[in-house]
Structure formats: structure tokens, C-alpha cells
Design a binder for these strands. Structure first.
Length: 551
DNA sequence: CTGGGGACGGGGCCC
DNA sequence: CGGGCCCCGTCCCCA
């Protein structure tokens, strides 16, 4: 962008907001400049009125009313919130100052209650989502009306587990679109419980929810994503916040000592009263990982390091010493700063690569042309240009791409409007029967990509299943959505006959958010691989389609 | 819309 | 066990 017409130059300071929040949190911890004290059952929490007003609709109204009343915002300095459990209040305050919500599963309800009372919409949404109380994709709004007791531990565990699935890399993209959770405090039309009522320890009257109606395009995890991964996108810099400092608050729920409680385990573990953050102390062997997919896929060697479970996002982090690195994605801490340009990074190795830009070092050179690259994968991508290889083919229009992400973008953007009329030519050497040769992580087979996620896109299915039917034409298999849905539900029964039958929407959402590749990676060659399932469904659908064409 | 570069987070391997 | 290094997949941005 060129300098402004009027000569004004805007100099962005991307880290300012992050550092600001970090410093505010420091002030809160030390009690510096705190002008508001929240109390709950005797526990006192010094805080800042401005921060609370920024994050809580309740406080915003509370202080706004005061100012309107002529006190200029200088009203009371102590607010008794016995209606919010101390632990929940602590978690909410932590969220307010770090954009990261860290709570044990057992305290989820308290936090939800507190978030509702205080009008912290995104937190309430996240808690409801995890507890399975959100209105689901079928428009069930009963969740909000459902008595909390009606949601059994099993249900909570189930939805929790599924939520783990959905809380994946796709979050980053959507988070960036949504913005920081603080920013996501959308202007509510309805007001929270009135300040007075809250001050007088009022009923658990939800301030206002209906998140899905307010952000129909966000998906049910929109706010949750923002909470779970604050460091992404807008790069909230928690600054001094270290994950280890948060450990005490979850000390009663130690990370998994061993074993990979991965998504594939989730499916197995449904109904086993899994408390995600606590997790059962599973045996160290891999026997409980079901069919030991590593043996089936012949994939990479199982690393010896103990996997650890992130207390924030419950993600299993493999590899020794990787947890601090992962936690920086939550805290936004970027301790590695470029001495040349000041850009900060969460990891030292990333800074090192970044420094190549300043040194001019491009260690990866192409053997066929003078091109040189900063990254090895750039060279890899580049080499595909020389080879002309386009191994990633769109199953619908058969357009080939050299890069997998370009194919994904092609499909996600619904850029392909040409419907497949027949099964594409298959490359013989790839092999297609049985899925043994479906490709490795490093060299994914194009065949494995044929089953695109939208083959059974939950949204489209649910929309159609919701009875509208008359909406826009489906991009795939027009007229066969019901068939897809049935196939999907069929597969659901295969995946988890008893446990998932009641939660198809959650399962579908999880698969949708998760992406097949990741799932496959976690269950290579396993029978629960969504990618394989998709392939089967796709093949089934194709077979049916071929039959129809034959008729 | 596509090709290409860059950023970012996770995993494997090694010390 | 922690950390460095490397590779990978994914996403975003720009031309």
C-alpha cells in the first residue's frame, strides 16, 4: 500500500496488542493498577475494570451503566461473584488476560455457568460445544434448554472426544477469519443478566447465547477455535505466560504418561468415561491402541519418546521436549527474535530459516535450473515443475495439480463444477485394490485423494437432511445426497456401532474438521481411517452411479 | 483461478 | 529428557 494520499503513513505494530495483553496480565498477577476485585466464596481476584469490560458483556454493561449514571466509571471496586465458582472465575480471568482457556473437564460446567453469567460469549459457546449442549447442525436448540443434569458424563466425554477431532489445523484458517476471541465478542442484541441481578447473586440466566444463529457460517467451533489457538493468526503474544506456570491449575489432571490417546483411540474410547484432560493412566504398550495400525501400515517407526497431552487443547504431542514448543502456540510467546528485522518466532529453527532471508543463503538449489530456495519443500515443489508430475488429480474434473494443497484449494473453493461422469483412468502402478498401496505420508497416492472431503460434506448432508432439499444444487452427486448420507451413517455404524450412533453430527463434524490426511496419518491403514472410509463410500457411490448410468 | 513462495505447527531423528 | 535440526503438510498471500 502506498503512502496515504494525504501524506499519512501507517506503521503497524503487530505485537503491540499481544504485548499489551501480556503486560496487563503481569499487572494482574502482581496486583498492579488493579481497580477491580472480584470475589467468589472468599477468594479474591484483583483485576482491571477495562479488561473485564472488554471481555465481559456483563461488566461492560455494569460499568457503562455507572458511567451513564454520572459516576464516570468510578463505581465500586469490589464485585462479589459467588454465583461463579472460584476455579471457574479463575479460568475466566485467565482467559480474559491470555485468550487461552484452561480448565479441567470436571470444571467445564462451572465455567460455562460463569461465562453465561458474565456474558463471555465465546467461552460459553466453547463450553457448550464441548459439553454437547450446542444446537447442532440439525438445528436442535434443545441443548440450551436442556437441563444440565440431563447431559450425562458419557455424553460429555463423547462430545469432548469428538471435539478433539474437530479441533485441528483447520482451526487456524477459520480463526484468522474470526479474529481473536476477544474480538469475537460479538455485539449481542440481547443483554446479559442485568448487573444488579448478578451482583445480587442471581439466577443462572444465560446472558444470551444462540451462537449458531449469530454466526451461522462460523461453524460450531468458531469461538472455540479462537479460544483454543489464540496464538495463531492474530498472534496473540502471551509474552511471559508459560505453560508450566499453568500446570498447577491442572495439576490434578496430569498429562498422559505414555501412549497415544489419539483420535483413533477416541473412537475406541467413547463411552469409557474419558475425561479428556485427565485421561486414564493407560498402559505403556501399544496394545490398547486397538489394531496397532503401525504394524499394518508399515509406516514410520514409532518414536520412543513419551507422548504428552496438551492441557489446553488436549492434543497429544509426540517427542521429547516438544511440549513447550507446542504450548507456545497457545500462549503466543515468541521468544526468538530476528536481530535484523525484529520479527519474532515461536521456534528457534524457524528463526534460523528466517535469517536466511537476511543472509541471502538459499541452501536448496535446483539441479536443473539456477533456482535456489530457502526451504527444502520449496525445492521439492519446484522439482515437480521440472518433472511435470501432477500427481494430484481432481476426482470430478480430473484436473491435475502438482501440489496437494492446490488440489485441496481447488476442491474447497468449489472451483470444480464439472461433475464426474465415469470413473477416471487409474494409474496402474499405483494400485488400488485393498488400499495397501494407497500411498504413504510422503507420497500420497492420487487415488487416496479421489475421495474428497466434500464427498460427504456434513454440512451439505445435514442441510439436505434437514428437509430443505430445495436449496442450491449440490456440487456432487446431485440427487444422491441421501445416498451419501446413508453411506455415511452406514460407515458410522461400522466405526462405532453403539457409541456414535447417537452423535452422527458430531462425528461428521469431526471428520470434516479433521481432514482425511491427518486421520490417516494417525491410523495408517487402519480400518477406522476416515480416508479409507471415504474411499469406500466414494467407490460405493461410484458403483451405484455406474449402475444408474447403465440403466 | 492457478502457480508459486513463504509461514507455521507437528513429528522423526539425533545428540 | 530436553533441545536442535530437518522434513512434512497445510494454509495464506501475492502475482
Amino acid at each position: 500500500m502506498s503512502p496515504g494520499e494525504d501524506g499519512l503513513i501507517g506503521i503497524p505494530f503487530p505485537e503491540h496488542s499481544n504485548e499489551l495483553l501480556s503486560h496487563l496480565n503481569d499487572q494482574r498477577r502482581t496486583g498492579l493498577l488493579c481497580d477491580l476485585t472480584l470475589t467468589s466464596h472468599g477468594a479474591r481476584y484483583p483485576t482491571h475494570r477495562s479488561v473485564m469490560a472488554a471481555v465481559s458483556l456483563y461488566f461492560r454493561r455494569l460499568f457503562g451503566a455507572e458511567e451513564g449514571g454520572g459516576e464516570g466509571g468510578g463505581g465500586f471496586s469490589v464485585c462479589q461473584l459467588d454465583c461463579v465458582a472460584p476455579d471457574a472465575l479463575d479460568a475466566l480471568l485467565e482467559f480474559a488476560y491470555t485468550a487461552t482457556l484452561t480448565i479441567p473437564s470436571s470444571g467445564m460446567r462451572d465455567v460455562l455457568r460463569g461465562a453465561q453469567l458474565l456474558g463471555i460469549q465465546c467461552v460459553a459457546d466453547a463450553c457448550r460445544d464441548i459439553l454437547g449442549e450446542t444446537g447442532d447442525a440439525e438445528g436442535d436448540t434443545a441443548g440450551e434448554q436442556r437441563p444440565q443434569q440431563m447431559t450425562s458424563e458419557r455424553t460429555a466425554a463423547t462430545t469432548n472426544v469428538v471435539e478433539k477431532i474437530s479441533r485441528r489445523k483447520t482451526d487456524k484458517k477459520k480463526l484468522k477469519k474470526v479474529g481473536l476471541p476477544h474480538n469475537n465478542l460479538s455485539p449481542l442484541n440481547r443483554l446479559p443478566a442485568s448487573p444488579d441481578s448478578v451482583r445480587s447473586l442471581p439466577p443462572t440466566q444465560p446472558p444470551s447465547p444462540e451462537p449458531e444463529k449469530m454466526h451461522p457460517n462460523l461453524g460450531q467451533n468458531g469461538d472455540l477455535r479462537a479460544i483454543r489457538e489464540p496464538g495463531r493468526g492474530a498472534t496473540l503474544n502471551g509474552g511471559l505466560l508459560h505453560w508450566s506456570q499453568e500446570q498447577p491449575r491442572i495439576a490434578h489432571q496430569p498429562p498422559i504418561q505414555s501412549n497415544k490417546l489419539s483420535e483413533d483411540d477416541d473412537m475406541e474410547g467413547l463411552g469409557d468415561n474419558i475425561m479428556v484432560m485427565g485421561s486414564s493412566s493407560l498402559p505403556t504398550s501399544t496394545a490398547d491402541r486397538g489394531t496397532a495400525p503401525s504394524a499394518a501400515g508399515g509406516g514410520r517407526k514409532r518414536k520412543s519418546q513419551m507422548p504428552q497431552q496438551c492441557p489446553v487443547c488436549q492434543k497429544i504431542i509426540h517427542g521429547a521436549g516438544k511440549m513447550p514448543r507446542h504450548m507456545r502456540t497457545h500462549t503466543g510467546e515468541k521468544p526468538f527474535q530476528c536481530s535484523a528485522c525484529g520479527v519474532r518466532f515461536t521456534r528457534n529453527d524457524k528463526l534460523k530459516i528466517h535469517m536466511r532471508k537476511h543472509t541471502g543463503e538459499r541452501p536448496y538449489s535446483c539441479q536443473h535450473c539456477p533456482a535456489r530456495f530457502l526451504h527444502s519443500y520449496d525445492l521439492k515443489n519446484h522439482l515437480s515443475l521440472h518433472s511435470g508430475a501432477r500427481p494430484f488429480e481432481c476426482p470430478l474434473c480430473h484436473k491435475a495439480f502438482a501440489r496437494e494443497d492446490h488440489l485441496q484449494r481447488h476442491r474447497k473453493g468449489h472451483n470444480c463444477l464439472e461433475l464426474r461422469t465415469r470413473r477416471p483412468r487409474r494409474v496402474p502402478e499405483l494400485g488400488e485394490e485393498g488400499g495397501e498401496n494407497e500411498g504413504t505420508r510422503d507420497h500420497p497416492s492420487p487415488l487416496s485423494l479421489q475421495a474428497h472431503s466434500s464427498m460427504f460434506h456434513p454440512r451439505s448432508m445435514l442441510e439436505v437432511g434437514g428437509g430443505s432439499g430445495g436449496g442450491g444444487p449440490s456440487l456432487l452427486f446431485p440427487g444422491s445426497i441421501d445416498r451419501e448420507r446413508s453411506l455415511t451413517l452406514q460407515a458410522l455404524a461400522q466405526l462405532a456401532p453403539q457409541r456414535l450412533a447417537s452423535y452422527p453430527e458430531l462425528f461428521l463434524r469431526g471428520l470434516d474438521m479433521r481432514g482425511g490426511r491427518e486421520a490417516e496419518r494417525e491410523d495408517p491403514g487402519g480400518t477406522r481411517s476416515p480416508t479409507l472410509q471415504r474411499e469406500r463410500w466414494a467407490d460405493d457411490a461410484e458403483d451405484e452411479e455406474a449402475e444408474e448410468e447403465g440403466e
